[in-house]
Amino acid sequence: MDDRYQPVVSAFQERFAAEMQEFRGEVTLILAPEHIVAAARALRDEFGFDQLVDVTAVDYYPQEEPRFHVVYHIRALEKGMILCLRAPLNGNAPQHFSVESIYPGANWYEREVYDMFGITFSGHSDMRRIIMPADWQGHPLRKDYPLGYEEIQYTFNYNEINLRKPRPKD
């Protein structure tokens, strides 16, 4: 691990009981979800991590505890450091906390996570779907959501599939 990360890691281990993981030189801190807002504030104000790069999630279906990990990548522009935070969430329709008040750029990312995974963020100013249509059912990037694969037409089943295809009216 790069020595520059040591102060952040030890501070977080002490304050938020964070678990540190290292893989291919990347430092990941796993925190309980209730600490995420305080952690983000500490990162921005104390350690100079000024830009939120990315918020996304990973679905570990069928595992229930934790079902999701919300993954944050936060960068210190001047120092060229990047830190990954992970917040494990349980259950099918989890609640999480928004970091929009600290990093305004989180707005759209959290909306996307809500849209794609169905994780709601409390304290978010505009919790609507962002990518899928507003009347869409389900959250596409969950592992229990089907890919929506259409059968491929070969000569032997061409007519059969052709009949089932939607056609334009008029």
Binding site: F23, R24, E26, T28, V53, D54, T56, V58, V71, H73, I82, C84
Partner: peptide, 20 residues
């Protein structure tokens, strides 16, 4: 097993891939 994050500078800005 594991997850990585790689970045490049695209013509529009930072392009990153998070791969698990």
């Amino acid at each position: 097993k594991g997850s990585v994050y790689a970045v490049t500078e695209s013509p529009r800005g930072e392009l990153g891939v998070f791969l698990e």
